[in-house]
Design a binder for these strands. Structure first.
Lengths: 164, 164
DNA sequence: CTTGGAATGTCAACAAGGCTGACTTAATGT
DNA sequence: ACATTAAGTCAGCCTTGTTGACATTCCAAG
């Protein structure tokens, strides 16, 4: 029913849209601020965080797979991955079926860092959700999803379907 | 009234929060994708976009002011600003009251680029808003605001009050 | 079987854009 | 007169994106 009236009620001035744009900018900064502080301690960056996050939620994923999700070049990811492997946070296993592939897993140490980062980020998200209330949260998710590129939306949904 | 029932109804599992985190990640990518393409054409980056955006919506702002909003060092901003001035997109005028200050303005050419970037970004925002409906938009804005750091929230509100 | 091409991953080098630190210049305020 | 503030500059570092060249592995067509 929200949708049925939606089209008519939605008079969007450029000013309102600009507010949305700025809100997105400042909110994203808040969103990454807590993990960034933790990562700084051990001289990692956001790229390491992203890799750890997605390896954690899809253990055994291949490098190529991760590439598609993260949307960077394989060379860029490789640098990050190499350091995570050297530091013993990530393990890379040669594929049994296809020996060209490497399957990625977090070590215990890797999982520990993932938890620290995740907890920090979730805490802020939880606080924001509580402050805004459940209806706001539903709206938040709807708008975010509508804002994604179709390709990325596919990745986003794929992540929660393929709980292998 | 949403808030009154909010606290009780909000059972947030870690999985739900992780979905929110990922949605934020993918949505932000979509959010910047269109301007990024335009910026690429003329070998500018997001840093230039941010500078142009905030100079446009607070014309005559000082360098120091911009520094606080953007949250970068003056050396970093200066590199970006220098090129925008060289390229004739931004004009820097010595302050009349305080001659130490430089006040920043977009030139006609600067405004033209700002419009292109802004139009692209607004188009996506508008499409997402339409798709999600007005109630969702309200919720979206509430959650984003709750997610900002308090300092940044101040900046965010200051921007729409001081329409000098 | 072999050989050429596709897929996968690695190494090297470069650029953008963050950062720190040291310093200058000019204007202001005390 | 002197300390402070705003702005700019230079040098150098790091992360993280990019391309290009290359090695390895697999598979399929000749």
């Amino acid at each position: 029913m929200a949708e049925s009236t939606g089209e008519q009620l939605l008079f969007l001035t450029d000013e309102q849209l600009r507010q949305g744009i700025e809100a997105m900018f400042f909110a994203y900064r808040g969103f990454t601020a807590d993990p960034d502080r933790i990562l700084d301690e051990m001289a990692y960056g956001r790229a390491h965080h992203r890799a750890i996050h997605f390896i954690n939620c899809a253990p055994g994923t291949t490098v190529n797979n991760l590439l598609n999700i993260l949307g960077v070049t394989k060379q860029s990811l490789n640098r990050v991955l190499r350091r995570l492997i050297e530091d013993g946070l990530v393990e890379s296993k040669v594929g049994r079926m296809d020996k060209r592939e490497r399957h990625l897993f977090l070590t215990e140490e890797g999982k520990a860092l993932e938890s620290r980062l995740s907890d920090a980020q979730r805490a802020r998200m939880r606080a924001a959700y509580r402050k805004a209330g459940p209806e706001a949260v539903a709206g938040f998710r709807q708008v975010l999803e509508a804002m994604m590129d179709p390709d990325m939306r596919r990745n986003y949904h794929a992540l929660r379907e393929t709980k292998t």
